[in-house]
Deep mutational scan, measured.
Amino acid sequence: MQGVVKVNSALNMRSGPGSNYGVIGTLRNNDKVEIIKEVDGWYEIRFNGKVGSASKSYITIVN
C-alpha cells in the first residue's frame, strides 16, 4: 500500500510506533512512502530504504 505525507513542514520518522521512540529520519510534504502495516495509530513505513514509523494522521493512502 502506498501513502503520501501531508504536513506543513516536516514529519519525524521514528524507530517505533510512538513519540517516545528515537527519530531516524524526516519526511517532507508530498513524500511518497510504502505502508507496511498499522500499529496503534501509527504506520510502519518504508522510505528511502529505511523502515520506521510515522503517525497515520499525516499520511494519506493512495491507490
Rank of each mutant, 00 (worst) to 15 (best):
N29W: 07
D31Q: 07
V5Y: 02
F47L: 05
V23K: 06
E44Y: 10
V4W: 06
K50E: 07
K37G: 15
Y58R: 06
N29M: 09
R28Q: 12
K50S: 08
R28L: 11
T60R: 12
S15Q: 09
K32R: 13
M13S: 01
S19C: 15
S57G: 11
T60P: 05
R46E: 08
V62T: 11
Q2M: 15
N8K: 14
E44I: 15
V39D: 07
Y58K: 08
M1G: 07
S53N: 14
M13N: 03
G22A: 15
G16Q: 02
E38W: 07
K6C: 14
Y58T: 06
L27Q: 01
G16M: 00
I61K: 07
K6S: 10
V4G: 01
S57L: 14
K50V: 14
W42Y: 10
E38S: 06
L11Q: 09
V7F: 06
N48Y: 06
L11I: 15
K6W: 06
V4S: 04
T60G: 06
R14L: 14
S57E: 15
V62Y: 10
V51T: 11
V4F: 07
R28E: 09
N12I: 14
Y43V: 04
N30T: 04
L27V: 04
L27R: 01
R28W: 08
N20C: 13
S53T: 09
N12C: 15
M1I: 13
V23G: 00
N63D: 13
N12T: 13
G49V: 04
N48W: 07
N12W: 12
G22T: 13
E44T: 12
V39I: 12
I36V: 09
I24Q: 02
E38N: 03
K37P: 01
W42G: 01
K6Q: 11
M13K: 01
G16V: 01
S9W: 12
S15P: 05
T60N: 11
I59Y: 01
G18K: 02
S53W: 15
I35Q: 01
N20D: 12
V5P: 03
K56D: 03
V7Y: 08
R46Y: 11
V39S: 09
V7R: 05
A54Y: 02
V5G: 05
Y21Q: 03
R28A: 10
G3M: 03
N63S: 13
N30K: 08
E34Y: 11
Y58F: 13
D40Q: 09
V62P: 07
N20P: 04
Q2R: 12
E38K: 03
S57Q: 15
N63Y: 12
D31N: 05
V23H: 04
N48H: 10
V51R: 09
M1P: 07
L11R: 05
S57F: 14
N8H: 13
N48D: 11
G52P: 01
S15H: 05
N20F: 10
S57C: 14
K32P: 08
N12Q: 14
E38I: 07
N29I: 06
K6Y: 08
G18D: 05
A10N: 11
A54G: 03
Y43F: 10
L27P: 01
K56W: 03
S57Y: 14
K56Y: 04
S53M: 15
R46D: 06
S53H: 15
G49P: 01
T60D: 11
K50M: 14
A54E: 02
N29R: 08
I24W: 02
G16F: 01
V7G: 10
S15I: 06
V5T: 02
D40T: 06
K56T: 10
G18M: 01
E44P: 00
F47V: 09
S15E: 12
E34H: 09
S15A: 13
N29Y: 09
G18Q: 02
Y21C: 09
Q2I: 15
V23Q: 04
E34S: 07
F47R: 02
K6A: 08
D40I: 04
I45G: 00
T60C: 13
L11T: 11
M1D: 06
Y43A: 01
P17Y: 03
N48G: 11
S57D: 14
G41V: 05
V39K: 08
A10E: 14
S53G: 08
A10H: 14
A10T: 15
R14N: 07
G22F: 09
Y58H: 12
V7L: 05
S55M: 15
E38C: 09
Y58G: 13
I61H: 04
V23Y: 05
G52W: 03
V39L: 10
Q2Y: 15
N48T: 04
K32T: 12
A10P: 12
K50T: 12
L27W: 00
V62E: 10
I24D: 01
I59G: 00
K50Y: 09
I24N: 03
M13Q: 02
I24P: 01
G18C: 08
A10W: 15
V33P: 01
N8C: 15
K32N: 09
R14I: 07
S53R: 04
K6I: 11
N48V: 04
T26A: 07
I24S: 03
S55K: 15
G25C: 15
N48A: 11
I59S: 00
E34C: 13
N48M: 12
Q2S: 10
A54F: 03
R28N: 12
G52D: 02
Q2V: 14
D31H: 04
L11P: 03
A54W: 03
K50C: 10
E34W: 14
A54R: 00
I24T: 06
E34N: 06
G41M: 07
V5R: 00
E34I: 11
N29D: 09
G16P: 04
G25R: 02
G22P: 15
Y21M: 04
V4L: 11
Y21H: 08
N63W: 11
T60I: 14
N8I: 12
N12P: 15
D40W: 07
V5D: 02
W42H: 02
G25I: 08
R28C: 14
S19A: 13
G41K: 04
Y43C: 03
G22L: 12
I24E: 03
G25Y: 08
S15T: 08
G52H: 02
V4T: 07
V51I: 13
I45D: 00
E44D: 05
S19E: 15
W42N: 01
N63M: 12
N20H: 14
V4C: 12
E44A: 05
G18A: 04
L11M: 10
Y21R: 03
T26K: 12
M13G: 02
G41H: 06
G52E: 02
R46L: 12
S55R: 15
W42F: 07
P17F: 05
I45S: 00
A10Q: 13
M13H: 04
G49M: 05
Y21T: 04
I36K: 02
P17W: 03
T26F: 11
I45F: 07
K50D: 06
M1R: 12
N29C: 10
